[in-house]
């Protein structure tokens, strides 16, 4: 960890540097999953691929939606739509901490001047039936990443164990770029012919989605969609394993798409305030049941088979 890193100038430069860094460390640089999810963990490249014995290494940006966090674009660091950078390596390499620190260096954090700390933070996702042990990583008292060794996903023991890194990109970038309000953060190069700030790209959408999430989303429709997604997920999984041509094709991924959908619909309903405290647990339990069934199906497939 020598040599002064060159500071990045924009949000996108930080993303590009992370892509280059993890690509250079052997990760497949994937693209975001094309569905609404609450966090990068939901991408099947993490949830499903952390199961089974096959080695895996992937890095990607995942747009993430948390409807309840919407603040109409006014809060300096709260957004209902934001980006996570996600790395998943299976089995977790022995030097994962060093690799991670290298990525901070790569985005311009000078290890000689900052105080990096690994502070206990065990991760649990009740909706995915998943848990792991690890830390939140602090840089000068600020949480910049989650670092987790997956122990269980969808109710299945992870063998081998995957190491998962999650960077909250906006927060991390604001810190690296020295910006106080997310909307003021340079999105592209400030010297480019069309300099754009984060707010130029997202302020209006934050307002629109905040209104829709909190006031307008049709709850009857969302409830129906939740039921539909749940039913479709179960239908897909209960289909015979052999297709019409006699091939064994277990449809774990299409089923999991429905599970993702149900999870996001639940988040929307939650933001609309129509789910009571007691119902909440029940909904989470229903999503978890889907996640578990998808995991059960995935581990019977080629990509998810145990050793």
């Amino acid at each position: 960890m020598t040599g002064k890193p060159v500071p990045p100038r924009s949000f996108q430069e930080i993303i590009l540097r992370l892509m280059t860094y993890w690509g250079g460390k052997g990760c497949a640089v994937l693209q975001p999953y094309d569905m609404e999810v609450g966090a990068g963990t939901f991408h099947p490249a993490t949830t499903l691929r952390s199961l089974g014995a096959r080695p895996w290494a992937a890095a990607y940006v995942q747009p993430s939606r948390r409807p309840t966090d919407g603040r109409y674009g006014e809060n300096p660091n709260r957004l209902q739509h934001y980006y996570q950078y996600q790395v998943l390596i299976k089995p977790s390499p022995p030097d994962l901490q060093a690799l991670y620190l290298g990525s901070l260096q790569a985005i311009g954090i000078d290890m000689d001047l900052h105080d990096i700390r690994f502070v206990e933070d065990d991760w649990e996702s009740p909706t995915l039936g998943a848990w792991g042990l690890g830390w939140e990583v602090w840089c000068d008292g600020m949480e910049v990443s989650q670092f987790t060794y997956f122990q269980q996903v969808g109710g299945h023991d992870c063998k081998p164990v995957s190491g998962e890194l999650t960077y909250g990109l906006e927060r991390l970038a604001m810190y690296v770029l020295g910006v106080d309000h997310v909307m003021d953060m340079p999105y592209n190069d400030p010297d480019s012919p069309t300099p754009l700030k984060y707010g130029d790209v997202f302020r209006q959408t934050e307002q629109e989605y905040s209104r829709w999430n909190f006031d307008q989303a049709d709850t009857e429709m969302l409830l129906q969609h939740f039921k539909d997604a749940e039913a479709e997920c179960q239908r897909i999984l209960s289909a015979p394993e052999l297709d019409k041509a006699g091939r064994r094709i277990v449809m774990a991924h299409p089923a999991y798409d429905q599970c993702i959908k149900a999870s996001h619909l639940f988040n929307l309903l939650d933001a609309r305030g129509v789910i009571s405290v007691t119902e909440r647990q029940a909904y989470i339990g229903r999503v978890r049941a889907l996640a578990k069934q998808c995991a059960d199906a995935f581990v019977t497939t080629e990509a998810g088979a145990a050793a």
Partner: peptide, 16 residues
């Protein structure tokens, strides 16, 4: 109080 596995091993410790 809580222990974990890591990598491909079966050993358990609080962290690797």
């Amino acid at each position: 109080p809580k222990s974990m596995r890591w990598g491909s091993g079966t050993l358990r410790w609080v962290r690797p």
